[in-house]
């Protein structure tokens, strides 16, 4: 896979607490410039992401927002309100977490009822990408969630969240793709090496959501926070051809 092809299949979401607004704006601009698949913002960043996107009118990078990410612990009313705000702000997609307590209890009726109301709030104008929490849930629970999403006509799923210590495995994707080949699979959860990313794609993943998009694309280094100094370094592009010629 060429580096540019890899970049076009990566999704970034620069909103963690170790960043500041200048770094976030720079991250977003670099993502649009590199043509990554999508950039997903937090609810408080809608205006920022739209403003930065306007600077790159030819970029194919999609924009989206997270809703109740990653635990889905907000009430249905708040989730629907945030979906409305994302829709009105012109987002292409929303990454949304189901009610995890209901899902863990295998109360799929509650999950489905909530998801129906969220679909209504989206009005068909914004793509919904619900989470499966594969690194925490049993395959039985993941299967239950997939059945709900499939029944509701949802065609894309996000496997997990990357902030935890849970690590997505290629075997997770093989299982998901084998049982639900109709889903567009967005992998999230500690895919930080190119080799593993390519194995994920071969197993059926469509896109990878990662904080390491430059590293995975082979085009540089990503922001890194140092807990000792409490400083965060900026991401950088690397011109390997130029470096090799030095």
């Amino acid at each position: 896979m060429y580096d540019r092809e890899a970049a076009a299949r990566l999704i970034s979401s620069p909103f963690t607490s170790n960043l500041d607004n200048a770094l976030i704006e720079r991250e977003l601009a670099d993502g649009f410039r590199a043509g990554i698949r999508a950039q997903i913002c937090a609810p408080g960043q809608l205006e920022l992401i739209r403003r930065v996107k306007e600077r790159f009118p030819d970029s194919k990078t999609r924009i989206g927002m997270v809703v109740s990410y990653p635990y889905g612990g907000m009430t249905t009313r708040v989730k629907c309100e945030l979906v409305r705000q994302a829709r009105e702000a012109g987002m292409d997609e929303v990454d949304i977490a189901p009610n995890v307590t209901a899902a863990a209890s295998q109360d799929y009726a509650a999950v489905e009822e909530e998801m129906c109301r969220i679909i209504e709030a989206a009005r068909g104008e914004i793509r919904l990408v619900p989470m499966l929490w594969m690194v925490k849930f049993s395959f039985e629970t993941v299967d239950g969630l997939c059945r709900v999403y499939k029944r509701l006509g949802i065609d894309s799923v996000k496997t997990s969240a990357g902030i935890h210590f849970g690590e997505m495995l290629v075997e997770h994707i093989e299982w998901l793709h084998r049982n639900y080949p109709e889903f567009c699979i967005e992998v999230a959860g500690r895919t930080r090496q190119r080799e593993k990313a390519e194995a994920m794609f071969r197993a059926g993943a469509s896109f990878i959501h990662t904080g390491s998009w430059r590293k995975l694309s082979g085009i540089g280094t990503d922001p890194a926070f140092d807990g000792a100094t409490k400083e965060c370094s900026a991401g950088k592009f690397t011109n390997y051809l130029q470096e090799a010629g030095k």
Binding site: G73, V100, A104, S105, Q106, D107, W133, K136
Partner: peptide
Amino acid sequence: MEAYYDYP
């Protein structure tokens, strides 16, 4: 506050 906690 975790994904795997259920009603019980």
